[in-house]
Design a binder for these strands. Structure first.
Lengths: 613, 613
DNA sequence: CGCCACACGTGACTC
DNA sequence: TGAGTCACGTGTGGC
């Protein structure tokens, strides 16, 4: 009925995978703890630490794991859609089984992914930031980020029916919670479910304004954003689809989509069926709906003028289906991850140009039919939850087709084309087992190998998507161009940086220079520029200090210092609207011409190489 | 006897491929023309434009094209070796046939690649720059770069025996020309060949100090560097190998390497032979040289502790050999491009950490035996030049092996192992024709497809290497990590840049800000910082002005300006060794506390968004 | 041995 | 149509 988390090659479903980090051990790290206390307050912290919700992952076994979990989550988080929106965090609460109480189904940490706030979001957060002094606020921001991160990697667990995810899972209904806490007291997070209090508090502390919980067969997907995001049916469907095992999609499709049949042709992000196994939906037989179950299904609501869906091969599907229980009648294909990504977040393809400009657009329903009201009525159906879990039939029945697989596939194609069902034909009993492109050459190992390779590819693509997001002005959309543009961009940035840094000659480490040239710093005297203000008697004395190398007259100072025969008689300063004028009257023991030349030489010479001393 | 440039899939050999750009039409662009005149002088320009050497590519047909030409060239240019050296430009002068005079073999533009000077090289160029004012020099630099680029994309051609490449090709000897033109009059470029005058002049103008010409069967490889590069036998061998068709390598090997037999085991960068077709060199038969022709051949002189050579599959070789005339006796393998790269430039793998720090190391011979003198004695042999050109035997004899190719390969392996020659065995007459992994399924198209895919992969890898070169602190060496690090690096750079730019609020364009913060500028009043010195009477008055935004006390000035209720009573300035202290005594009509808060707020607040007015 | 990363040939698709 | 891009399954080498 279950298999261990992390068994097989489905590493994404494992507990402490890459995004996970580890168990937040409150006792080990005093610094962390005090930080959390500072952010959340003592109340929340006590609640949190005393709360039994925090479990160790080792106490749970995932009932079933989902492949590419981390990738799917990070997809939602790291890849902005064409509206420049992506979720700030995504967690998958996985259906697990407590090792202590075998019959107790709980939702445990599956995997999670979060990201740093983007530019536009920082602005938003700044507005709603706690009213603190500027300095403190920065620190707070940083700490918040860490807490948020910790939060996401924490191992909460929710018994079925308990907590937000638990409730969500039990009811089979999604939750879409928005909280614009400009009005501070009225926190919808807190109202919605008292069991959810802790995490609501945490979320609120982190500036999260929208939390979405979406039940799937395998658990609950939780998404959070610092923005206020309108409810969106496409998103719900897509996420459901992505985070469900393949066999369930037809259930979804039959049940869910029937809510609004017209939507089928706009069924953003779901690509079911493929060319090789043309299992037509009976309902649509003969109806000239243009290949909804075929390969022609496209995103029609992306005004980018680019079809972003690609299909996977039948081999992939069969391969996947093999890992799950096989329901031949429902095997009209699965959504490809790529489609899922595009559907859930939109595509960054072709729309990344202005991504980093902080476009204020919020992910919003595009089709009139996808309104919040419609989505709210959707019942996800509970009947298929928790009932269909079956172990993957790992029975080592291996069929080797022997000959070139292309021929084999063609045959299959012909068969399925004529019979509308891959059950027919002589190859029926073998095909569900294995029908990859090359049916491996004897051993069972390449099966895992294939899966590992898939994940590697997926990861690579993930990075490519992420890279696309950070590189502006991508000339072409192919990988090579992307890399080229990235290289160019890096070079450009480095050149810019060099120029900027050459302006202010390094003193100490360069990064320190950049961090604070002009900051109020009362407690410690660093070597960066600073302002000291004291008010006594009737006047305010402002003392501005800066490293000599950063001062506009630094070279002059150096010249004066180098030649101890010169002395400053008078120094005045004038500021206009645009310029500051320092005037130094210098006297030396030599002739004025000599002094002039000296100063001129010192000031114009390439004396940058000297060390500041 | 030949095939059209660009025919087939060997796109790299085409005339105006990606690196090429296009024909430098002097008549069309007056601006360009005057720029060139300014850079090169009228003399050179006239010579250039009146010279018949400039040909249109359409007048030439490549006699044979080399696969991955652009990749190979950009490899030499864009991928620094472990000494941080890479060539500034690389051109392949391709053996072509004039369409006008069919019997006239000329060297025409094959492809070319150049890059921007690196940091360290800029320093070098600055030293030898024309003595111009500082500002003008920047412009000149930029123009030079463009001219250099144009130079590289120009369509010179060299009849056999004429010009540097032509001579080089005719003689079958390489040319290694260094010119340290600090002593300006004595230009070795000019001395070496009068026909080469134009390009020598151009090269000199571009700051090129080393030009290497290496003849191969298919043309002449020209490399240039702004550095002085010592003659290097490894480089010569490697480049020769890379830019020769596969069948010629044994010729090289038999003739060239025999100069110094001991070098064979150090034959840096040449990986001949592979595991599948173990054609042993007769000379070494039985000799326990550790698999020089086998897969164990490694770079032994890279102290990076990493083996950087990988092997290609036999399929690749056969595929390639198929494109050329097949000389079974000489088919002891070809160099893989990857190896070529590593050999010619060294590997950036594992050594990229300090690459951008402008390491002054120059590509130098590593083996004692690889001295310039040895290299100078090498005769490339002329007998195989131009004699072996044969059209690819495109006869559509198609043999489909039907069964899984792995078995097929294994058979071949066994055969060739036992017979030392793949000619033996029943598949002899078909195998030379086609023996890919999957021998395609009927049509001839996938043959080119395979090649195209190879090139795509190679290009992608190329970019990956280039990316590795610009990303510091690469955590792991795999692609995904590289991408991740690149993304992190971009983000980091962008953050740094943001900080630096926020420090000095933009006035005008940001790039201008960076160019000159403290420069003597007598003739024109720009808005950058400047020093004005006048000497009258007994003292020297130095006036330093800078944009108000760049001044350390800019925010204070702004605060004072914003609140006109404050006035500065006194302003003093003190400079120590390390710091400059501005002290402002400020009086306002309000209480001192209020004033203090105001100043504090103004100084610490986010007032960066305001425009300087 | 298994895992990981890579390169390869190939099919599918797009423009 | 064909060149280019991508994903896939597979082989393989290194650890």
């Amino acid at each position: 009925m279950k298999f261990e988390v992390g068994s097989g090659v489905c590493g994404g479903g494992g507990g402490g995978s890459s995004g996970g980090g580890g168990y937040w051990n409150w006792n080990d790290d005093e610094e962390e703890k005090s930080m959390v206390v500072k952010i959340l307050g003592k109340h929340a912290f006590d609640y949190l630490t005393s709360n039994s919700f925090i479990t160790n992952e080792s106490m749970l076994m995932a009932t079933m794991s989902l492949e590419n979990l981390q990738n799917k989550l990070s997809d939602l988080v790291e890849r902005p859609n064409f509206n420049n929106f992506s979720w700030n965090y995504a967690i998958f609460w996985q259906v697990s089984e407590s090792k202590l109480k075998k019959d107790c189904v709980v939702l445990g940490w599956g995997d999670g992914c979060c990201r740093e706030p983007m530019e536009g979001e920082k602005e938003l957060k700044k507005i709603e930031a706690l009213r603190l002094s500027f300095d403190d606020d920065e620190v707070i921001q940083r700490m918040r980020k860490r807490v948020l991160q910790k939060l996401h990697t924490m191992y909460f667990s929710f018994p079925k029916g308990y907590g937000g995810p638990g409730k969500c899972f039990e009811l089979g209904k999604h939750l879409w919670i928005c909280c614009d806490d400009d009005k501070d007291g009225d926190n919808e997070f807190l109202n919605c479910d008292s069991d959810y209090y802790v995490r609501a508090f945490l979320a609120k502390s982190a500036g999260i304004k929208t939390v979405v919980l979406i039940p799937t067969e395998l658990g609950v997907v939780e998404l959070g954003s610092v923005r206020i995001v309108d409810e969106n049916l496409d998103l719900l469907k897509t996420v459901y689809s992505v985070f469900s095992p393949p066999f369930a999609h037809s259930s979804l499709f039959n049940g869910f989509v029937n809510v609004n049949r017209d939507e089928e042709k706009f069924f953003c992000g779901i690509d079911i069926g493929d060319r090789d196994i043309r299992v037509m939906d009976h309902r649509l037989e003969g109806v000239p709906v243009p290949k909804i179950f075929g390969k022609e299904l496209k995103v029609v609501n992306l005004n980018l003028g680019r079809k972003i869906f690609k299909k996977k091969l039948a081999a992939r599907k069969i391969e996947e289906r093999k890992s799950w229980s096989t329901y031949p009648n429902e095997s009209n294909g699965i959504r490809s991850l790529k489609n899922a990504r595009d559907g859930a977040n939109g595509s960054s393809l072709g729309g990344t140009q202005g991504l980093r400009q902080g476009c204020p657009g919020i992910f919003a329903p595009i089709h009139p039919s996808c309104t919040s009201n419609v989505a709210k009525q959707v019942d996800w159906g509970n009947d298929f939850l928790l009932e269909k879990f079956q172990p993957p039939q790992q029975a080592p029945i291996h069929i080797d087709f022997g000959v070139g697989s292309i021929v084999g596939e063609r045959e299959v194609l012909n068969n399925s084309l004529s019979c509308k069902d891959e059950k027919s034909g002589v190859t029926q009993e073998r095909r569900p087992r294995k029908r990859g492109r090359k049916p491996a050459n004897g051993r069972e190992e390449p099966l895992n190998h294939v899966e590992a390779e898939r994940q590697r590819r997926e990861k690579l693509n993930q990075r490519f998507y992420a890279l696309r997001a950070v590189v502006p002005n991508i000339s072409k959309m192919d990988k090579a161009s992307l890399l080229g543009d990235a290289i160019a961009h890096i070079n450009e940035l480095q050149a810019k940086l060099k120029v900027l840094e050459s302006e202010k000659p390094t003193f100490g480490n360069a990064s320190k220079v950049g961090s604070s040239r002009f900051e109020v710093n009362h407690e410690e005297m660093t070597c960066s520029s600073e302002v000291d203000i004291e008010a006594n008697q009737k006047v305010v004395i402002v003392r501005v200090s800066c490293p000599i190398d950063l001062h506009p007259a630094s070279k002059l100072f150096q010249a004066l210092k180098d030649s101890d025969m010169m002395s400053v008689l008078e120094s005045t300063l004038d500021a206009t609207n645009k310029h500051v004028f320092h005037t130094f009257v210098i006297k030396s023991h030599e002739s004025e011409q000599l002094t002039k030349e000296k100063v001129l030489a010192a000031v114009s010479g390439e004396s940058n190489s000297r060390k500041p001393d």
